[in-house]
């Protein structure tokens, strides 16, 4: 996965990340409260990330089509192509066999409406996380080259309220979601974390799973449940930083440490290469080489920390 992470480090320094969090109609007090608290939590976590982050949230009665359109019109003027853009949809969705709709006060927004709004945003790197019921039906209309689409369900037929949003938001604050420990949670890591937690939720409650999350980032597929960058799915998502909580970005900007950083990247790439060769290698030899590379990488990191 290192190749995509190298791309991550190579992001333009001045680029900002814009978040739009929309929490739709709950329909009953319990859901209303749940959706708006998730939206607040997501906003707080996104703001807490290092780097330039802008977050706009519309929840409950404020999340009308009119206000959403106005917000997107404003963002269309501000967001630049080099920026990243995240749209998080929380709430209920419906699918009538033809069209997906995001349930909000007043007229709903269809998948096509949402696609049209997103198309006005010039950011070339976009992430849409649709955590609503029936959200799987929105993949086809929202997908586009350069855009990652994540849905809580695998189709429009999974119509029960979902829990995916809860775990997606948890991924933004749980260091365990950062599985490669590079102090950044990528969209792919968050997707994997939330998918696993969602599956575990249904298992532990002894309930039939009524949601099966999907990720689509090739611009042409129907989405996959287990993205694998090696096989083509999840590459964009692996290189899309959602939240950063470390000093990695600061170090990248310090000219005095560039040589060490270069050595670090070189070692990381060597480790990746070695891992790809693992199956064809003698296990003792693999272990020896891996240990040597990891020890050196650890020493370089130690130097970087001084």
């Amino acid at each position: 996965m290192r190749a995509w992470l190298v791309a991550l480090l190579a992001l333009p320094v001045q680029a900002a990340t814009y978040w739009v969090v929309l929490a739709g109609l709950g329909g009953e007090p319990d859901y209303e409260q749940r959706f708006s608290s998730w939206a607040r939590e997501a906003e707080k976590l996104a703001r807490g990330s290092t780097g330039e982050v802008h977050v706009s949230t519309l929840a409950g009665k404020d999340a009308t089509a009119e206000r959403i359109r106005a917000l997107f019109a404003d963002l269309a003027r501000r967001v630049r192509p080099e920026d990243s853009f995240v749209l998080l949809l929380i709430g209920h969705g419906t699918f009538d066999g033809y069209q997906y709709k995001f349930n909000i006060p007043g007229p709903d927004l269809s998948g096509e409406d949402l696609a049209a709004l997103l198309d006005r945003i010039t950011a070339t790197r976009q992430l849409v996380v649709n955590t609503t019921s029936a959200s799987g039906a929105s993949v086809e209309t929202l997908r586009k080259p350069g855009r990652i689409v994540i849905t809580a369900t695998k189709s429009g037929m999974e119509k029960n309220a979902t829990v995916f949003a809860r775990y997606w938001i948890e991924a933004l604050r749980d260091p365990a979601a950062d599985t490669d420990k590079n102090e950044t949670v990528s969209a792919l890591e968050a997707f994997r974390y939330a998918s696993q937690k969602t599956a575990r939720f249904y298992e532990s409650q002894r309930r039939l799973a009524t949601e099966h999350p999907l990720l689509e980032d090739t611009g042409q597929g129907g989405g996959v449940r287990s993205p694998a960058p090696e096989e083509g799915s999840g590459r964009l998502a692996a290189a899309f930083p959602l939240v950063r909580f470390g000093r990695a970005q600061a170090a990248a900007r310090d000219p005095a440490r560039r040589a060490l950083l270069a050595r670090k990247e070189e070692l990381e790439q060597k480790i990746d290469l070695l891992k790809y060769q693992k199956a064809a290698m003698d296990s003792a030899e693999y272990r020896k080489q891996l240990t040597a590379l990891l020890v050196e990488l650890a020493r370089v990191n130690e130097e970087l920390e001084k």
Binding site: T179, N182, E268, T291, L297, A298, N301, E305
Partner: peptide, 26 residues
Amino acid sequence: AREHVLAALEAAPGYRPAQKLLLELN
């Protein structure tokens, strides 16, 4: 311990606490 710290770093080579433990063990 060495086996598991290696496995940790194989999954996440940049994992600082594991790197520190690796240096202590090696």
